[in-house]
Nucleic acid binder design. Structure first.
Lengths: 163, 163
DNA sequence: GGCGTATTGTGAAGTAACTTCACTATGTAG
DNA sequence: CTACATAGTGAAGTTACTTCACAATACGCC
């Protein structure tokens, strides 16, 4: 099916792949969102929990930096999470300006649950694929991520993923 | 390297892959957003343009259905897009209740540009990968998408993509 | 010890994207 | 012609963000 050099249909393939990627990103995102909503959480708040889960107690400033948002925003998210009893604001041991944010017991349970769900999802999606295919897939993903990180904008496609 | 049945490290691989996927989704999303913001657009508004670009003039109701949002929301997005001169609200030929939304000339230029950017991005990301690798990648993506669509929620991982 | 300066968290106010609910103008079936 | 469904929009509310201003604290330096 491919007899010529290779410029002819590679562009089309690359485009198709990117479209797929957009589509997957969207489906994945909306699934995640629904799952979280079901448990009474939003993406932003869950992101904060996730961060605390993986990196332990930290200052609001650090949280803001990690999540890439304004410190002010973190204040708001934490207000909500604290009210839900998922998170605790404690005194920082050495700096009296800062508050040290930690997961509560409830918050820990919650995040462990989330991680479990993620693993389950991974199993459903990829659990039975041959190791070779998985490895190749992950490799290509990694290549894409690396290249993506080195690109500055110029205009891309929006959210629908339909071609 | 794999002598036993196959439960031992496949879970880990699947998890890693899913994490990569989350990471890619995030990077891709934020790149897109930055690109759009640079041109004075938001994701939601661009999504509407994209829809019109691909499916031609349509009613606000149809737009709402396609984008999966409330009709009321579409009204707002169109108000903005119309003010920017990217979109036109015209009379529906047969139904006097409905408005027929179309891209303006400016809107068409804009969306063509976007598509160009997308193709460029695809080329940068995948342009030089061997066709075989691309095909395998797209296939795996497709499998994931299909399976994903058949899953109802249970709890997944949030936005950071760090492991 | 005292000061100037940087930093931490938060109040105030604003934007974008959504939603639900109520209401008007039309279409349409009977 | 009436009853009911449908298209778009005003009003009001939520969440996630942002910027700006400010009080409390930390800290380097003379």
């Amino acid at each position: 099916m491919k007899l010529l050099h290779n410029t002819p249909d590679e562009p089309a393939t690359a485009r198709a792949s990117l479209d797929r990627l957009f589509e997957l990103a969207e489906v994945l995102g909306s699934l995640m969102q629904r799952g979280l909503a079901e448990r009474g959480l939003t993406t932003a708040r869950a992101g904060v929990l996730w961060e605390l889960f993986h990196h332990g107690p930290m200052t609001q400033r650090a949280l803001a930096a990690r999540r890439g948002v304004t410190p002010r925003n973190v204040t708001g998210l934490l207000d909500a999470l604290e009210e839900e009893g998922l998170v605790t604001r404690g005194a920082h041991p050495t700096d009296r300006r800062a508050t040290l944010v930690s997961l509560s017991a409830k918050g820990r349970t919650f995040t462990s649950d989330l991680r479990g769900g993620r693993d389950e999802l991974a199993a459903v999606l990829f659990g039975d694929l041959p190791p070779g295919q998985m490895a190749a897939f992950t490799d290509t993903l990694t290549v894409a991520i690396d290249r993506l990180k080195g690109v500055e904008p110029g205009g891309e496609a929006p959210g629908t993923g339909e071609s």
